[in-house]
C-alpha cells in the first residue's frame, strides 16, 4: 500500500560562517571505508538558503568499495567530511522511497545505485528535477502529497457493513488486478522524469494517477464515480501526453504510464455510457 515517504530531518545547521558561498573546500576524507582502495569524485548540488540565494555544486572525492551505493557515499560525506550535507533517507533497501535524487540527470533511488556502476567523473548528484529545492538534495514534497490526497486514495463504500459481519473478502484474482499499482513507494522519481509535470506543476502526475487506478481496480471499492471525476480533468489524466518515462524510471515497476492510459479508457467509457445510456447505472 502506498504510504507517505518518511522524511528524515536534515542535519542541524551550524552557525553561519563569516564568509559567503561557495563554502571552503572540504577536508580530505579520513579514514577510508575498510577494504577500499578506489576513489570516486562526486559533484553534489547544494542549496543553503540561509547563506546564499542560488544553488551551487560542491565536489567531494571519497574512497569506496564495490558494495557501496550512492547513499553510502552521501552518508560517508556527511559523517566524515561535511556534516552540513542535507538529504533524505531511511530504510536503505528501496522500501521507504525517501532517498531519490537525480544521478547523472536521471532520477534514481540512491540506495539502489552502486558507485561501481557509475562511469563519469565527477558523478553529478542533484535534487530530484521538477521540484522546488528546500536544502541541498531535499525537495519540497508538499505539492506531491496534495496530489495523492486529491484522488480519494481509500476504499469508498456506499453500503458500509457492521464490523461484526467481518471483512470484505477478495479472491487472489481480484487482488492481482490492483497489486501492481499498490507497490508504489511514493519516491517521486516518476515526477522528476515527467516533462509534463516539469512544464506544469498543476498536473496530477504519474504516482497519484497510479494510486487512483489502484482503488479503481479494487473489488471492495464503490467510489469510482467521484474518483474518476477527480482525475479526469484538464490538469488530471488528460494532460498526460504519454512520454512514458515515468514507467521507465519506476523502481517498483508500477507502470504509472499504463495506469494513466487505463484511467483514460475508463473515463472515456464512462462518458460514452452516460451519453448513450443516460438512464444506466454506468
Amino acid at each position: 500500500m502506498a504510504g507517505a515517504p518518511a522524511p528524515k530531518p536534515a542535519s542541524a545547521t551550524p552557525p553561519p560562517p563569516p564568509r559567503s558561498v561557495p563554502p571552503p573546500p572540504p577536508k580530505p576524507a579520513v579514514p577510508a571505508p575498510k577494504g577500499s582502495s578506489k576513489t570516486i569524485k562526486l559533484r553534489i548540488g547544494r542549496y543553503r538558503p540561509e547563506r546564499s540565494a542560488e544553488p551551487f555544486y560542491q565536489e567531494f572525492t571519497i574512497p569506496y568499495r564495490d558494495d557501496m551505493v550512492v547513499l553510502d557515499a552521501l552518508n560517508y560525506i556527511k559523517d566524515r567530511i561535511d556534516p552540513t550535507l542535507a538529504y533524505r533517507w531511511s530504510c536503505r533497501m528501496g522500501i521507504c522511497g525517501s532517498c531519490g535524487a537525480d544521478v547523472e540527470g536521471s532520477p534514481k533511488l540512491t540506495c539502489a545505485l552502486y558507485l561501481k556502476d557509475l562511469r563519469k567523473s565527477p558523478v553529478t548528484i542533484e535534487p530530484l528535477a521538477n521540484f522546488a529545492v528546500l536544502k541541498d538534495l531535499i525537495v519540497d514534497i508538499e505539492p506531491f502529497m496534495e496530489k495523492l490526497e486529491s484522488v480519494n486514495p481509500y476504499i469508498v463504500r456506499g453500503d458500509e457493513k457492521p464490523i461484526e459481519r467481518g471483512e470484505y473478502r477478495q479472491t487472489p484474482e481480484e487482488l492481482e488486478l490492483y497489486r501492481q499499482q499498490s507497490l508504489c513507494i511514493n519516491c517521486m522519481l516518476c515526477y522528476a522524469a515527467c516533462p509534463v509535470y516539469g512544464h506544469d506543476e498543476k498536473f496530477l502526475g504519474p504516482a497519484a494517477s497510479a494510486l487512483a487506478l489502484r482503488y479503481e481496480m479494487d473489488s471492495r471499492d464503490q467510489g469510482s464515480e467521484e474518483r474518476l471525476a477527480a482525475v479526469a480533468t484538464s490538469h488530471g489524466i488528460w494532460q498526460c501526453t504519454f512520454v512514458g518515462e515515468c514507467s521507465v524510471v519506476c523502481p517498483k515497476h508500477v507502470d504509472p504510464a499504463g495506469a494513466i492510459q487505463q484511467l483514460k479508457a475508463r473515463a472515456a467509457t464512462r462518458l460514452m455510457r452516460s451519453m448513450l445510456l443516460p438512464l444506466s447505472t454506468r
Binding site: Y47, P49, E54, P55, G105, S106, A129, N130, A132, V133, L134, D140, P195, G198, H199, V243, G244, E245, V248
Partner: peptide, 17 residues
Amino acid sequence: PYVRHRSAWWWTKNPRY
C-alpha cells in the same frame, strides 16, 4: 524553496524524450 527553471533543450538529454 528554490524553483529551478527547465532548459528549453530538455528533450535532448534523453533519447526517449
